[in-house]
Amino acid sequence: MMSNLSGGLVHELPQDFVEALSKNKKIIELWESLTPIARNEFICWVEDAKQEKTRVKRIDRAIEELLEGKKQPCCWVGCIHRTDKKPGKWQQEVLINKKLRK
């Protein structure tokens, strides 16, 4: 298993995601070909799952999407943890404000 896969711009690559990505060389190559921002989006999307079963599904889906040539997770509004840019209006309303109301 490869443990030195690249992380994202803000997020480190969690071990369960490392293990899934390390299952074959093609997936590793696809992952490493992504920009740090693109890797960050996948990691943030996985980390945002509230339940373990959702997290597992997202890791599996991330691998499927990589194999399909996608460069970011489908239906994800973006990482709210980045400090290099201001969150968009959609991110602010849906992700940030919603979490503050809980």
Results as ranks from 00 to 15, higher is better:
His11Pro: 03
Leu13Val: 00
Leu13Pro: 03
Leu13Asp: 01
Leu13Glu: 01
Pro14Trp: 10
Gln15Ala: 11
Gln15Arg: 12
Phe17Arg: 07
Val18His: 14
Val18Gly: 03
Val18Arg: 07
Glu19Asn: 08
Glu19Met: 08
Ala20Lys: 04
Ala20Cys: 02
Ala20Gly: 03
Ala20Val: 04
Leu21Met: 03
Leu21Val: 03
Ser22Trp: 07
Ser22Asp: 13
Lys23Leu: 14
Asn24Tyr: 04
Lys25Val: 03
Lys26Pro: 00
Ile27Asp: 14
Ile27Glu: 09
Ile28Pro: 00
Glu29Ala: 15
Trp31Glu: 09
Trp31Asn: 08
Glu32Cys: 10
Ser33His: 07
Ser33Asn: 15
Leu34Ala: 05
Thr35Ile: 05
Ile37Ser: 11
Ile37Asn: 09
Ile37Asp: 12
Ala38Ile: 01
Asn40Val: 05
Asn40Asp: 15
Glu41Gly: 03
Glu41Arg: 09
Glu41Thr: 02
Phe42Asn: 09
Phe42Arg: 10
Phe42Ala: 11
Phe42Thr: 12
Ile43Cys: 03
Ile43Pro: 10
Cys44Pro: 00
Trp45Cys: 01
Trp45Glu: 05
Trp45Leu: 00
Val46His: 02
Glu47Gln: 11
Glu47Ala: 10
Glu47Asn: 13
Asp48Ser: 14
Asp48His: 05
Ala49Leu: 10
Lys50Asp: 12
Gln51Asp: 09
Lys53Val: 06
Thr54His: 11
Thr54Glu: 13
Thr54Leu: 11
Arg55Leu: 08
Val56Gly: 02
Val56Lys: 14
Val56Asn: 06
Val56Leu: 09
Lys57Asp: 08
Arg58Pro: 06
Arg58Leu: 07
Arg58Met: 02
Ile59Thr: 02
Ile59Cys: 01
Ile59Ser: 11
Asp60Ser: 05
Asp60Met: 08
Asp60Ile: 03
Asp60Asn: 11
Arg61Asp: 01
Arg61Thr: 04
Arg61Glu: 01
Ala62Thr: 09
Glu64Leu: 15
Glu65Ile: 05
Glu65Pro: 06
Leu67Thr: 08
Leu67Gln: 15
Glu68Gln: 13
Glu68Val: 01
Glu68Trp: 01
Gly69Asn: 01
Lys70Phe: 07
Lys71Val: 12
Lys71Ile: 13
Gln72Val: 02
Gln72Gly: 01
Pro73Thr: 13
Pro73Phe: 04
Cys74Asp: 07
Cys74Val: 05
Trp76Leu: 04
Val77Leu: 11
Gly78Glu: 07
Cys79Trp: 02
Cys79Thr: 04
Cys79Ala: 08
Ile80Glu: 00
Ile80Arg: 07
His81Trp: 07
Arg82Trp: 04
Arg82Gly: 00
Asp84Cys: 14
Asp84Asn: 14
Lys85Gln: 08
Lys86Leu: 08
Lys86Ala: 08
Lys86Glu: 15
